[in-house]
């Protein structure tokens, strides 16, 4: 711990390189990562975490850029975590969200970090939560998390963000039908981007109908925006603020964050159990010993599991 105090103080003072290096350590699951996360925890909880999700190419990065720029102009400090998929075959990736945000690169109020999913499913990467905490302690007022644009499996963002902005675009047509099942549970706000394009009224109508038919106690607002022309951005920020106020005044923010802590601790325990079991070489010996038996039908995989479990724990 003593080792890290210097580092933590540097982060709290807003040192960019320290911030960047800490995120790397967390991403790479280096030995120091856990100490860092322990050390910064008491300095977290101040940032408003905003998820930006929606279909590929919908304008998530462009919108994140505009929102961040506006908030930075207001003197706010903004962190952005932009996630793109890692190839399951090579482990490599091309992280391209910065292309839409280059003008923010030298903005002293903004810090952008790209992450590959590195095998994690659900639209985020495993290090996203740690990255958020680092940004939070670093002093960000707002943290944007741009998910992988996969459309359907973005459930993780709900558990991660205080406010989720679902970016939709005209012409999704049948796709809306397909993703409908999931999106009502995910969206706190609908931003219909590319509202300069044909079909935006129709999309707006369809989403409005969907929202009205839903039985959520708080109907998500629907906004038309044109991210690449900077239109509707202030209104969207307003809605994001309103949502946060709603969460606070109803006690839902605390509820949400307690649930987040709960699932975080469960995940940590799962990881710990897995790594304790599978870092033990004897486990593999035991495993190898039963393979033939299972193959020869002298043992079934479930009984083998019971046997191994008994031997391990």
């Amino acid at each position: 711990m003593v080792l890290n105090l210097d580092l933590i103080n540097k982060l709290l003072r807003g040192d960019k390189r320290t911030c960047a290096r800490m995120i790397t350590k967390i991403e790479n699951n280096e030995k120091e990562a856990e100490d860092i996360l322990k050390g910064i925890y008491e300095h977290t909880g101040n940032a408003h975490i905003i998820g930006i999700t929606g279909p590929p190419g919908g304008g998530k990065s462009t919108l994140t850029y505009r929102l961040s720029k506006e908030l930075s102009n207001q003197g706010k400090k903004v962190g952005i975590i932009a996630i793109d998929p890692t190839s399951p075959f090579t482990g490599g990736s091309i992280l391209g969200d910065r292309i839409r945000m280059n003008k923010l690169a030298t903005d002293p109020n903004v810090f952008i970090r790209s992450m590959g999913t590195r095998g994690h499913l659900g639209g985020l990467s495993k290090a996203t939560h740690g990255g958020i905490k680092v940004f939070d302690a670093y002093g960000c007022d707002y943290i944007f998390v741009e998910t992988v644009g996969v459309g359907q499996s973005e459930v993780d963002i709900v558990k991660t963000a205080d406010t989720v902005v679902m970016v939709m675009v005209p012409g999704l047509g049948d796709d809306i039908q397909a993703i409908k099942a999931g999106i009502m549970e995910i969206a706190d706000i609908f931003a219909i981007n590319k509202s300069d394009l044909e079909g935006s009224e129709r999309t707006t109508r369809e989403i409005r109908m969907m929202v009205e038919m839903g039985n959520e106690e708080k109907k998500p607002p629907i906004l038309n925006v044109i991210a690449n022309q900077n239109e509707g951005i202030r209104e969207l920020i307003e809605e994001i603020h309103k949502h946060k106020e709603y969460l606070i005044s109803t006690g839902k923010l605390e509820e949400k964050r307690l649930e987040r802590i709960r699932s975080e601790i469960i995940t940590l325990i799962e990881d710990e159990i897995k790594s304790r079991i599978f870092n033990d070489k004897d486990v593999y010996k035991l495993l190898d010993n039963v393979l033939k038996d299972v193959y020869n039908k002298e043992l079934d995989p479930y009984t083998a599991k019971d046997k191994l479990f008994k031997a391990i724990i």
């Binding site: 960019k16 390189r17 911030c19 960047a20 290096r21 995120i23 790397t24 890692t86 090579t90 482990g91 490599g92 990736s93 091309i94 992280l95 391209g96 910065r98 292309i99 280059n102 690169a105 030298t106 810090f111 952008i112 970090r113 790209s114 590959g116």
Partner: peptide, 25 residues
């Protein structure tokens, strides 16, 4: 080749490149 590539596209100033490289570590 299994690398993580942060692609920033056209027309970067040296200042933007260095700032991005630091943030992305």
């Amino acid at each position: 080749a299994s690398m993580e590539v942060i692609y920033t596209g056209l027309r970067q100033t040296p200042e933007q490149i260095v700032a991005a490289a630091i943030q992305e570590d």
